[in-house]
């Protein structure tokens, strides 16, 4: 009989490993320093936005140069282009700053934060944060029909039929375009933007991974 079965049959052995960590003093000092570092950097730079989202804000502004919305999406020739952000705004003030004082075909910009899919039909360009995706996926084709250009940043978003999806490749931002979905809403995307896209899909089914 092996020792294993001897002990198993003999008595129940309570977990002896459930006592909490006894951490050495050097360790505590080390952790404390790192914690302080985090704490200070957090408050010193609380308003800083990561470079990724500064770049993505610039992308959103640039997209509008290559997109024609149906004229009925604007009240008149002066009406602004409305950019909506659904979910907690990852851009901070960067998106507003990117479009501030700029115009596109004589239209100024308005940036608005949205909390629900229902409010999203009024915007021209809708950026969907990953956290807010789940509440919008079922409404995507309705939004597209209504002439809303949707922009997201996850594979799931692309798979659900979002029009433009940001990806990252070799540490650089790329984007893919679902042309069929754009056409459903009569949103015209210029060929230049299509050329710069990593992939252009003409059906709503996603391409598998390479």
């Amino acid at each position: 009989m092996t020792p294993r079965t001897l002990i198993a049959n003999g008595s129940f052995v309570a977990p002896a490993c459930f006592r909490f960590a006894r951490i050495s003093r050097a360790g505590w000092i080390c952790l404390l320093l790192l914690g302080l570092n985090l704490f200070f950097s957090y408050f010193a730079n609380a308003q800083q936005v990561s470079k990724e989202y500064q770049l993505k804000a610039a992308f959103l502004y640039n997209f509008t140069k290559f997109i024609d919305w149906p004229t009925n999406r604007f009240a008149d020739a002066e009406a602004p282009i409305v950019i909506g952000v659904l979910g907690a705004n990852p851009f901070g003030g960067e998106l507003a700053k990117a479009v501030e004082g700029r115009t596109q075909a004589g239209r100024t910009f308005v940036v608005t934060n949205l909390s629900s899919a229902a409010a999203s039909t009024n915007v021209h360009l809708l950026f969907v944060t990953p956290a807010a995706e789940s509440q919008i996926v079922d409404h995507l084709s309705d939004l597209h029909q209504a002439g809303v250009l949707t922009v997201g940043e996850t594979k799931g978003f692309a798979a659900s039929g979002g029009i433009i999806t940001f990806t990252t490749e070799a540490d650089r931002i790329r984007f893919e375009i679902n042309l069929t979905e754009a056409e459903h809403g009569n949103i015209r995307i210029s060929s230049k933007l299509l050329q710069l896209a990593k992939t252009v899909r003409r059906k709503s089914t996603p391409a598998p991974d390479p």
Binding site: K51, L55, A58, N62, K97, A98, L193
Partner: peptide, 15 residues
């Protein structure tokens, strides 16, 4: 201000 950059330039920026 990254918004001053062209799309091509933006595609070249590292994250």
């Amino acid at each position: 201000n990254f918004a001053d950059l062209s799309l091509e330039q933006l595609l070249n920026e590292t994250v």
